[in-house]
Design a binder for these strands. Structure first.
Lengths: 225, 225
DNA sequence: AACATCTTTACAAAATCTTTATACAAGTCC
DNA sequence: GGACTTGTATAAAGATTTTGTAAAGATGTT
């Protein structure tokens, strides 16, 4: 079995070193670039399985590099950002980032996110039924079963669940969800979203107060797991 | 009891008359068109159970009409052709014809082919009778039993029940149902649907106010269980 | 003409969505 | 710590949309 390749684009040598050690000891092959330009060239010459991109790079803004990569690179791109830069995170996610990590990060979390992103890379899109632990969503029949019994969902609730479940493991920003479900011009109506996330949780979560399926990422959006 | 409808598209009046007499005496309802254009319009306005199409029509070649029908019409189309036109027959079958008959044909064979084609329409799987808890639908005989007694359904009611029951457990949208039962161009007449769902429920549900068989999915459509 | 069926209209009932109000939790500033 | 801000959750009232039902008109069949 060949090792999955991960490309790190970051200007700080210490961070690169840290990532390299952690990733290599977990059986990934690590490639490194200390600026955006080199990173893009390396990715183009030999597309890796996943890219770790520091959003706070010196030469070009990390956002620019993300956009440029996303014009052709379809696999996972995980963003590294400093704390308290929610704005950066949101624009990155809206520009097609797969996930994000705030520095300093716990290595356990880093590895978990990487595994999940790579798993999603290779997922079969064409499936019509998706099963989670206690939920079965049948896209063709437009039905949702929880522990075997049929749930009664309204149209909006179903659409929301569909959107979230199709992006399992990935953070969807409020704006993105609002745009997809309600349409353009509703991106500021985050209250709608809270209400519907609430009703959905009541129906699909065992304990709506401690949701396991629809997790809120404060300041950013929601994640389905 | 509701009769299966058959549309004849043929320019020769004698043939149409002959077919009409034979089919009506065998309990089919017969619709006629003396050219391809009218035939397509009739089929679109009110999709019949089966179409008999003469391949040697004057205005458009029968092949063209077959192709056009097959862009949306999914039920049986039986081709009528003159003898010794194997080329016609082969292209017709390639274009999606269900079966063919060469003129002059024996009426016994005609009826047998029609029965077989209609039976195939309605079973996809090899079943001809489907039982639900208190309902028994016999696709071959076009009859419906509720708790053992025969229901009196109109043609449209039966077609609707057929469509729903064939898609048990899956949500059918208003548009889809309207297209299948009433034809293209009726997708906006959702009121028809409400009325007929209402009459059907009165006949098949124990308590029409709390339907168990035909469940409404508000904003989307209906689901049969 | 009598009948069955389909189409249309009108209105009542139900379901869903939107909006408002309020509470809670986490972090910040003084 | 206490007041304040920001983001989130929940309930419930109000508004709107969707659905159900009855019944009258239209059409077609026997």
């Amino acid at each position: 079995m060949s090792k999955a390749e991960i490309l790190i684009i970051d200007d700080e040598p210490q961070i690169r070193k840290l990532l390299q050690i952690n990733l290599e000891s977990n059986d990934y092959k690590v490639l490194q670039a200390d600026n955006g330009k080199t990173g893009i060239i390396m990715a183009a010459n030999h597309p890796p399985e996943l890219i770790l991109l520091d959003i706070g790079l010196p030469d070009k803004s990390g956002h620019e590099i993300l956009k440029e990569l996303r014009t052709w690179y379809t696999k996972a791109i995980i963003i590294l950002s400093v704390q308290n830069s929610e704005h950066d995170i949101i624009t990155a996610l809206d520009n097609g980032a797969t996930d994000y990590l705030t520095k300093p990060f716990r290595t356990g979390e880093l590895l978990a996110r990487i595994r999940s992103a790579i798993r999603r890379n290779n997922k079969d899109e064409s499936k019509t039924i998706i099963e989670f632990t206690d939920l079965v969503i049948d896209y063709a029949a437009r039905t949702v079963l929880k522990n075997g019994s049929l749930l009664k969902l309204t149209s909006t609730e179903y659409n929301l669940l569909l959107l979230l479940s199709k992006n399992e493991g990935r953070v969807l920003t409020h704006q993105y969800i609002l745009k997809e479900i309600w349409g353009l011009g509703f991106q500021t109506e985050t209250q709608y979203l809270r209400v519907f996330i609430g009703t959905l949780r009541k129906k699909i979560e065992d304990n709506p107060n401690q949701p396991t399926h629809i997790v809120t990422e404060s300041g950013v959006g929601y994640r389905f797991t």
